[in-house]
Design a protein around this nucleic acid. Structure first.
Length: 237
DNA sequence: ATAGAGGTCACTTTGAGTGT
DNA sequence: ACACTCAAAGTGACCTCTAT
């Protein structure tokens, strides 16, 4: 049996089809009693969704035709957590990408939750340094990690020395507003840490035939990042 | 007569708190 | 760690009222 939240999400998805749904139809589709369907409808209305009903013969539930709502169902605490997370990200970024995401989220939320999102944003101040983020590069790195490709790029180290690298990317890490790439350098045959803002012209590379990916030497990437990252970051490539 | 709205009650499930 | 208790929430059944 679905949890109440999961069932409400399914109910919302059914209503979004634009069809007129009787309680009997919905109770069959959701495999719950009609009374439970009505209670779920009431819950969605409390969240601000405009679900219209027509008493009497031929009556049915229908989502207000002017309302276009995505299948997004969050409670007030989850909205608060999500907004806070975006604010932390906003504070660490030099561009407005997280800000626009938060604006879109607010537009998608029903009124009562939108009020919570706005309140959470207005009441929160995050203090941190900001750094420019190369989103296309981050996206490309994520893709290459996901599909097991290598990454080729030009790199300028902290001393201004330029070099060309081909690496097996492992993780991108955000620390103090700076994005790093943890990767195995296939030419130097060792693990390296790269600042992504010093990476230029990254492009996916197909690994050589027979190449076997290097597993990260420590089974706990998280522990490594916590205990060794500070030292490693001081000697970043 | 049909169908949605909503109140009440009993039962079940779930999670927190407590004792051993 | 485990068992037990208890409160809260969810659910289904039954009912009455209202609108068509």
């Amino acid at each position: 049996m679905d949890s109440p939240s999961a069932r409400s999400l399914r109910l919302l998805a059914l209503l979004q089809t634009g069809h007129r749904w009787t309680v009997a139809d919905l109770s069959r589709r959701l495999e719950v009693a009609p009374r439970t369907v009505r209670r779920d409808v009431a819950r969605l209305r409390m969240l601000g969704y405009d679900i219209q009903s027509h008493p009497g013969p031929g009556g049915a539930y229908v989502l207000a035709p002017s309302i276009k709502i995505p299948p997004l169902l969050l409670d007030a605490d989850e909205v608060c957590a999500l907004v806070t997370g975006l604010l932390i990200l906003e504070a660490g970024l030099a561009d407005d990408s997280a800000t626009t995401v938060r604006a879109k989220l607010e537009r998608l939320l029903p009124p009562s939750l939108r009020q919570r999102a706005v309140a959470a944003a207005a009441a929160t101040q995050v203090l941190t340094a900001t750094h420019a983020v190369d989103w296309p590069a981050l996206g490309m790195i994520a893709d290459t990690i996901a599909v097991g490709q290598h990454l080729g790029f030009a790199y300028t180290d902290q001393h201004g020395h330029a070099s060309n690298r081909i690496v097996q990317p492992y993780r991108k890490v955000l620390r103090h507003g700076i994005w790093y790439l943890v990767a195995y350098d296939t030419q130097r045959e060792d693990w390296r840490l790269f600042r992504i803002d010093r990476v230029h012209e990254p492009e996916p590379r197909t690994p050589a035939p027979g190449y076997e990916a290097h597993p990260f030497p420590d089974e706990s990437i998280h522990r490594w990042l916590i205990t060794d990252f500070g030292r490693a970051a001081q000697h970043v490539n």
